[in-house]
Design a binder for these strands. Structure first.
Lengths: 346, 346
DNA sequence: TTGAAAGCGCTAACAG
DNA sequence: CTGTTAGCGCTTTCAA
C-alpha cells in the first residue's frame, strides 16, 4: 500500500498500453474509440478504480457540468418542489446543482450569484425579474447563461420560464367577485424587490377596478411570507371596518396563517370571511376548511427551467420563453358572502 | 473590444507589475504580501474585473470549497428547512452546496454520491445510517470526508449529528399510553433501507411492550411519506377491528394525510381516534385539530451538520458526534380515549 | 517579501 | 482510429 494519491489518466494509459488521449476520448466520446481499445481502457479504469479529476477536467474543458440555482428560500414548499424537479432533470443529463438562497434580499442574491459563478457554475437559474441594475450588469457583462423562472410577462424574453402572476390573480379575483364579494382585502407579499408579489397585487387590484359594481379593495397589507405574519395581517385587516368579505392572500403560507388566526379569534371561514391563497402547496388542501387557491405547476416549471437552461448551455438559441398555466382551485375557504342578500336584484 | 476571454492571473500580474505568485498570495493569504504590493494588486484586479478561474484553482489546490448534500427529498419540509440552514452556514464560510436527492432509494444514493464527488465535492452530508455495503465501501476507500445526519444512536461515531429517533418515539408513545390508550396502531415510514423509520417503529413498539397493562400495537402499516398514503393507511387501519384508539405516525406528512382522510370518512379526531405525528413541520400546527407531534430541531441540525463537516474538512478530528434533542408537542389531535371509562379503577 | 518555475490532470488540435 | 503535444490558470516550493 504505497499508493498515496488517486490514479490519473496517465496511470490508466500506462496500464492499458494506450495514450492518455484515447482514454479521454473513451470517456467523453466513446464512439471515437475502437471497441477493442475501449475494452482495454475500461478494464484498466476498473482495475485502478480511476475517477476523472474534476479540476483537471474543468480547467482543460472550461466547463464543470454544474449549474447554480439562486432562490429566495427552500422553506417554502413552492420552491422546494420546483427545485426538486429542476435537480432531477439536471441529474439525468449528468449535470449537478449548486444551490444558494437569498432570503428575498437582492444584495444577497448578487452575492450568491457571484459565489456560484466563482464555484464554477456553467449557468444559473434565477427566480423572478426584479433585480437591481448592478445584478443585471453582472449577468450581462459576464455573459452568464441563465434562465429566469417563476414569472412570465407578455413581453417575456427567451430566457423566461414561468406563469403570469398578474393574470393568475386577475382570474382568481374574478371568481371571488362573481360569487358576490364586493369588499375585498389583500394580504400581499412584500412587493419591494419582488416582482411576483407586485404582479399579484396588480392583478387583484385591476380585476376589482375592471369589475365595477361597487367592488373595492378595502385594504391591502404587505407581509413577509410566514405563517405568523399572515395571521398578524389578518387580524389587522379584520379589526377595522368595514370588514372585507373576502381576503386574497399573496400565497398559501399567508393564507394558512390567516386561517389559523381566524380560528383563534373565533372568526368563521368562510362564514364571516372568505380566504384565497396562491401556489397550491400541499398545505392548502390539508387545512380546514381547504384553501381555495391558484395551482401553480411547480414541478413542471422546475423541469422546464432545467430543460431550457441545458439547451442554452449546449448552444441552442430557441426553446424559450416557456409559459406555463395556472388554474384556480375553488375550495371550501371561499363561499358567497353572507351579506350577498344586500345586493340589489338585477 | 477585442478581449475575448476572462482576465487571468497573468494579466493581473502584468498590469500590477508583480509576479503571479504574489497575486495568488494576496488572494489566499494577504498577510504574506506587503501593503504597497497588495494595493497595486488590488487596483489591478479591480481594473480588470478579475475573478479567479475555478478549474485552475481546483486543479492546483486540489480543493473546490464545495460540499455536497445527498438527501431523500426536498419535498418534505423537514429536509428543506434543514438544508436551508446547512447552506447558510456553509455560505458564511465561503463554501457552496451541491445538492442531490435520492427519493429514498439507496442505489440512487450511491449514484448521487459518486456524481457529487465527480463534480468536485470536498465532502458530503448524508442522511441516516442505513446504506448498503457498496456505498460504505465507496465512502471508505475514497476516504470521503462526510457527516451523517438525522440520526443518532448511543454508539454514534464522531461523524454523526442528529437525534435518537427510537428514544424520541419511545417517549412520545409513553405520553400516549399515559393518557389511557391501550390499543395503538402505527403508520410507519417504509422501514426497508431507512434506519430512521425503523428506529421510530422500534421506539413505539418497545414503549408499548415495556408499559404492559394490556397495551398492544394492534396494527402497523408501512407507507411512503406522502399525504395520500397516510390516508390510505389510516383507512386500512380503521376498517379493521379492533380499532385502535390512537395512531402514531412515522412523520407529520403521514399524520396530516391520516387526518384529512379521517375528515373525509367522518371519523372524529381525537374523539374517535387520536393521532400523533413526528418532525413538527409547519403543517402540524396549522391543521385542525393541530397535530400532536415530536419537535425535531431541523434548523439546528442543519447548522451543526455544516459546522461539523467544515471542521472535518479543515482537518479537525473532534467536534462530533453531536446529539440534538427532541421534544414531545402535545396538541389537540391527542386526547384520552373515549373508552377510558372501560378501564378498571386502581 | 518577492519571483521563477514546476507542475496539478485533463482536453483538444493536429499529425500520423 | 490513435498518439503527440501544447496548453488551461492556478498554487506552491525553492531561491533570491
Amino acid at each position: 500500500m504505497t499508493k498515496i494519491s488517486a490514479p490519473t489518466l496517465e496511470d490508466v494509459a500506462r496500464l492499458a498500453g494506450v495514450s492518455t488521449a484515447s482514454i479521454s476520448r473513451a470517456l467523453n466520446d466513446p464512439d471515437k474509440v475502437a471497441k477493442p481499445t475501449r475494452d482495454k481502457i475500461e478494464a484498466a479504469i476498473e482495475a485502478l478504480g480511476y475517477t476523472p479529476n474534476f479540476g483537471g477536467r474543468a480547467l482543460a474543458s472550461n466547463r464543470t457540468n454544474t449549474v447554480g440555482a439562486v432562490v429566495p428560500t427552500m422553506a417554502n414548499a413552492m420552491f422546494a418542489s420546483g427545485l426538486q424537479a429542476f435537480q432531477e432533470v439536471l441529474s439525468e443529463a449528468g449535470v449537478n446543482l449548486l444551490l444558494a438562497t437569498t432570503g428575498y434580499d437582492s444584495e444577497q442574491e448578487l452575492r450568491q450569484i457571484k459565489a456560484l459563478m466563482a464555484h464554477g457554475a456553467d449557468g444559473l437559474m434565477l427566480i423572478g425579474d426584479a433585480r437591481p441594475q448592478s445584478t443585471r450588469d453582472f449577468l450581462e457583462k459576464r455573459r452568464i447563461p441563465h434562465v429566469i423562472s417563476w414569472c412570465f410577462q407578455p413581453d417575456a424574453s427567451p430566457i423566461h420560464v414561468g406563469f403570469d402572476n398578474r393574470a393568475a390573480c386577475y382570474a382568481a379575483t374574478q371568481h371571488v367577485l362573481e360569487l358576490g364579494h364586493r369588499r375585498i382585502a389583500m394580504i400581499c407579499g412584500v412587493r419591494q424587490g419582488n416582482d411576483r408579489a407586485a404582479d399579484r397585487f396588480d392583478g387583484v387590484s385591476a380585476a376589482i377596478d375592471d369589475f365595477g359594481q361597487g367592488a373595492a379593495m378595502v385594504r391591502a397589507v404587505d407581509a413577509q411570507y410566514r405563517l405568523e405574519f399572515g395571521g398578524d395581517a389578518f387580524e389587522k385587516i379584520m379589526s377595522q371596518s368595514p370588514r372585507p368579505t373576502a381576503i386574497i392572500c399573496g400565497n398559501d403560507v399567508l393564507a394558512a396563517g390567516a386561517l389559523k388566526r381566524a380560528r383563534e379569534l373565533g372568526i368563521d371561514v368562510p362564514g364571516d370571511v372568505s380566504l384565497v391563497g396562491f401556489d397550491d402547496i400541499g398545505l392548502a388542501s390539508v387545512v380546514t376548511p381547504a384553501l381555495a387557491t391558484v395551482r401553480v405547476p411547480q414541478i413542471e416549471m422546475g423541469r422546464e427551467a432545467a430543460r431550457l437552461l441545458l439547451a442554452r448551455l449546449s448552444g441552442e438559441e430557441g426553446g424559450g420563453p416557456v409559459e406555463l398555466h395556472t388554474e384556480f382551485m375553488p375550495r371550501a375557504s371561499l363561499a358567497p358572502p353572507a351579506q350577498a342578500v344586500d345586493q340589489p336584484e338585477p
